[in-house]
Design a protein around this nucleic acid. Structure first.
Lengths: 143, 143
DNA sequence: GTACGTGCAAACGTTTTGCAGCGGG
DNA sequence: CCCGCTGCAAAACGTTTGCACGTAC
């Protein structure tokens, strides 16, 4: 957890984002606790628990801005809900379908053999590998 | 395109679904045109264009039932929208971020080197590989 | 005939927006 | 001081649901 409040100000500044009270407070929640997979709703609850006065609109703005600035990585696994991953290193995910929970897979535990080239005129932006798992005794097709 | 209306009745029957007019008509749209990646909204438009009287609720019911029965495969790439893939063979996807379009990658063009074992007590349900691409000149982080 | 499927409209949860006011640089 | 950020409430979006009617078998 290489994080200090000081670093957060730099982080925001380097990303071209001004250091508002909300962004500093939310940034402390987001980045101050190691690698996390946050949904907007989770972050809202944590902010409330930490007595940070912040509106839901600002939660969404902040998550989107942080993602756009490369401070977070958005992961889409379920229709109708986004997760934001603080782990920016190359890695992949288990998704526990029955819990709605993500789990990191470090890049050295999984590699892709022969990545096909991007279609003409396009660049590869990201490669997401999602291994969907569920309890052994659960029904299939649970999503 | 190995498809005939006759086969569709069998398909539905084998899946334990009764052959209603709506399911037959939608099935013809879904399966009668080769491999496709359909959203609910697209299917609704095509049904309207084909003068199939069907409500939006039935579109969603049908897509969900077909998926549950293993006739379709749901692919989640964007928050707030599901795609349904008629290609049931093992394969992966390019996702064109700026067009919101999926493109198949056949399994033999990409393979995973060393799949990690599922976490204790869980089974792997599916492995999704999504290669996100965008026009070369487009902004990064477009989603 | 009966259980299951359908249509409609209203509800749902998540995310986005419009606009007035506040605060960072 | 000014531009950008924030809060609020309301709207938008895709999707789901409850219930009365219709249809497959």
């Amino acid at each position: 957890m290489n994080y200090t409040p000081q670093k957060l100000r730099e982080k925001l500044h380097d990303a071209g984002l001004s250091a508002t009270n909300q962004r500093l407070a939310l940034g402390e929640l987001i980045f101050g606790r190691g690698n996390r997979h946050l949904s907007a709703e989770q972050l809202r609850k944590e902010a409330a628990a930490a007595h940070i006065p912040v509106s839901l609109a600002t939660i969404y703005n902040t998550l989107r801005q942080f993602s756009g600035a490369g401070l977070l990585r958005e992961v889409v696994v379920e229709p109708g809900r986004s997760y934001f991953d603080t782990n920016l290193s190359e890695h992949h995910h288990f998704f526990h379908e029955d819990e709605g929970r993500l789990e990191d897979i470090s890049a050295d535990r999984l590699s892709i053999n022969n990545l096909p080239p991007a279609p003409n005129g396009t660049d590869i932006r990201r490669v997401d590998v999602i291994i969907r798992v569920a309890r052994e005794d659960a029904q299939r097709d649970v999503i």
